[in-house]
Simulated assay, not measured.
Amino acid sequence: TYSLGSELQEIMDSPLAEKTNKLKKQLKKLDNVTLHIAVTGSTGAGKSSFINAIRGLKPDDVNAAPTGVTETTMTLTVYAHPTMPNVKLWDLPGTGSPKFKAKKYLKEVKLDTFDFFIIISSERFKENDVMLAKAIKEKKKLFYFLRSKIDNDIQAESQRKDFDEQKVLSHIREDCHRNLKDIDNPKPKIFLISSFELHKYDFQTLVDTLEKQLPAHKRDALILSLPIYSSKILDEKIELFMKQTWSAAVASGSIAVAPVPGLSMACDAAILLAFFTKCYYAFGLNDESIDKLSVRVNNPSLKSVRKSPLVIAIGQKKLSNKELSALTNREAAVKFAWSMVPVVGSKKTAEMSYSATLTLLRAGVQDLADTAKEVLKVAGLTDVY
Results as ranks from 00 to 15, higher is better:
K189S: 10
D184T: 09
F116H: 01
Q159K: 15
R147N: 03
A156R: 15
R147F: 02
S121A: 12
I172N: 02
K149F: 01
K161T: 11
K189M: 10
I118G: 05
S122L: 03
K161S: 12
V168Y: 07
K149M: 02
R173E: 15
N185D: 05
R147L: 04
A156M: 13
N185K: 06
E165D: 00
P188R: 08
E123S: 15
V130Q: 11
I120S: 08
Q155P: 00
L146H: 02
K126M: 11
V130E: 08
S170I: 12
E174H: 11
I136R: 11
I154W: 02
S121F: 05
F163I: 11
E123W: 12
D164L: 12
K167N: 12
F145A: 08
E165N: 00
Y144S: 06
I118V: 13
E123K: 15
I120K: 09
D184Y: 07
I172V: 09
E127N: 15
D175F: 15
K189C: 13
N128L: 02
R178M: 11
D153A: 15
D164P: 03
S170N: 14
F117P: 05
D184A: 07
F125W: 05
N179R: 13
Q166P: 00
P186L: 03
Q166S: 07
F145Q: 10
K141L: 15
L146I: 13
K149R: 06
H171K: 15
I154G: 00
M131N: 14
D115M: 02
R173C: 08
R124I: 14
F114T: 01
D115N: 05
Q166G: 00
K126P: 00
S148E: 01
L180Q: 04
K189Q: 15
L132T: 01
V168N: 05
K126Y: 07
L132Y: 03
S148I: 00
A156E: 13
M131H: 12
P186E: 05
N152Q: 11
P188G: 09
I150C: 00
V168Q: 09
L132H: 01
I119F: 07
K167V: 08
Q155R: 14
E157K: 15
D162E: 14
N152M: 10
L142Q: 13
L132M: 03
D129E: 10
F116C: 03
A135M: 06
C176D: 06
S121W: 05
V168T: 12
K139G: 03
D129P: 04
P186K: 03
H171V: 10
L142Y: 09
N179K: 11
E138F: 12
L146A: 08
Q155E: 13
K187N: 09
F125V: 07
E165F: 00
I119G: 10
D129N: 10
M131A: 14
F116A: 01
K149H: 02
F143D: 10
D115A: 02
R178N: 09
I119R: 11
K149L: 03
N128Y: 04
A156H: 12
